[in-house]
Computed example of a mutant assay.
Amino acid sequence: MQQVQGVVARKKGAPVEIVTINIPDPGPGEAVVKVLSCGVCHTDLHYREGGINDDFPFLLGHESAGIVESVGSDVTEVAPGDFVVLNWRAVCGQCRACKRGEPHYCFATHNAKQKMTLEDGTELTPALGIGSLAEKTLVAAGQCTKVDPEARPAAVGLLGCGVMAGIGAAINTGAITRGKSIAVIGCGGVGAAAIAGAALAGASPIIAVDIDAKKLAKAKQLGATHTINSSDQDPVEEIKRICAQTYEGADGADVVVEAVGRPETWKQAFYARDLAGTVVLVGVPTPDMKVPDLPLIDVFGRGGALKSSWYGDCLPSRDFPMLVDLYRQGRLDLDAFVSEEIGLGDVEAAFDKMHHGDVLRSVVIL
C-alpha cells in the first residue's frame, strides 16, 4: 500500500478537499497508474452534488492519461512503463454482447475489486470507477488503453470521457458520414467533440446550436459550418432552413445530437431531424426528467431512429489509439479542448468556471 494526495467530495454540495488516500498494491487483474493529467468533467460536479448517487465520499476524476506503475497477477494487456489513457468501461469478453461481437455494448464492464480508502480506512467511491484526480489511482487493467507515448497527456486524456462521448455520438452512434447533415444541440465539451467528429467524418452542413456565443465560436473553430444562437432564433426552423439550402427537399438534419440532456432540447432534436433521420441523446439527464409528450403518430410518421449513446458507443482498445494517431497527424485538434492547465488545489474554482461556461475543460496537471 502507498499514500498519495487526491481530491475528495465528502458530502453533497460541500467544497472538495485535497486529502491523503491509501492506494492498495494491485491485485489480480488490477493496475496502479501514476496520473499525469486529469480533466475536470461535469460528471465530477454531478458526483459532488449527489446527482449520480449518494455513495460518499467520492474520489473524483476520470478523464486521465498516465503511466502504469505496477500490475497484479494475470495482467497481460499492459505493463509497467506503458503510457495509457484510462477508460471507464473495461469489457468482460464473456457477456452476451461481447460474445455476439459487440463489446462496445458490454453488459458486465468492471472496475478494480479492491477499494482505495481515506487514512482512517473509510472506503472511497471512485468516480466512474476510476478516481484519477489524484497522484495515483487503482483501476482494473482493462481500464488502461495504451496509446502513442509522444502524445500530450492533457489533450489525449480527455478521450477518457467527454471527448470520446461526443466524437462517438456522431460517428459511432449517429453513423454520420459524407453526404449527411448533422446538428448538435449543446456545445459544451461533449457537443464540441461531436462537432469535431462530424468534421472528421466529412459531414455537411454541420450545425452548432447553443445559447452561448463563446461556445458557438469554439464550435466554429472545431468544424461547424453554421451556428445558431437558440436564445434569439428558433433552432428547429433554422436547422430545417439550412439543410434545405444544401439538400433539395430536406426537412431537417440527417442526424441531430442532443448534448444537453433536457426534455425540451431533446424535443427540439426530435423535430429538427429529417424524415428517417436519427436523434442521438448523449447529454445526461437527471433521474426526474421525462420524455416529452409527443404524438405517437409523429414518432411513427417520421421514421428513423431515437438512440442513446453510451460513452459514444466506443471500444477504447479500438478507438483511443486511432484518435490519438489522428491527433498526432494534426487531423483532430484535441488541444482545442484544453482551456487551461491547473493544479489539484484548483478543482473547486474549475467547477465555478464550468458553471459560467468559461471553459471546455480545465485539466489538472500532476
Rank of each mutant, 00 (worst) to 15 (best):
D254G: 14
D44F: 10
I239M: 06
K214A: 15
I21F: 11
D25R: 14
I23L: 07
A165P: 03
G252Q: 03
V19I: 05
S231Q: 15
Q329G: 01
A183I: 03
E135M: 12
A208N: 05
I185G: 02
V260D: 10
F58E: 05
F320G: 10
V236L: 11
S317I: 11
A165L: 05
L36H: 14
R89H: 13
I342R: 07
V280G: 06
G249W: 13
M354V: 05
L86Y: 12
D346H: 03
K267T: 08
K215W: 09
G39D: 08
V324I: 08
E348C: 02
L124K: 02
G168N: 08
A201E: 15
V280W: 09
F56W: 09
L128I: 09
P153D: 05
D346V: 01
P295T: 04
G301N: 11
E238C: 02
A112I: 07
A305C: 03
V68Y: 14
K146Q: 12
G186P: 05
D44K: 10
N22W: 00
C243N: 15
V35C: 08
I167G: 08
S230L: 09
A134Q: 03
F337G: 05
V209N: 05
C41I: 06
A198F: 08
I239S: 10
D313V: 02
L326W: 13
G27E: 13
K267C: 12
A208K: 08
G6C: 06
L159I: 12
D55C: 11
G188A: 01
V299C: 13
E238R: 15
K113H: 09
D55I: 00
A259W: 09
T145P: 07
E77R: 15
A112S: 14
P15S: 11
L334K: 06
V364K: 00
H46V: 00
F300M: 15
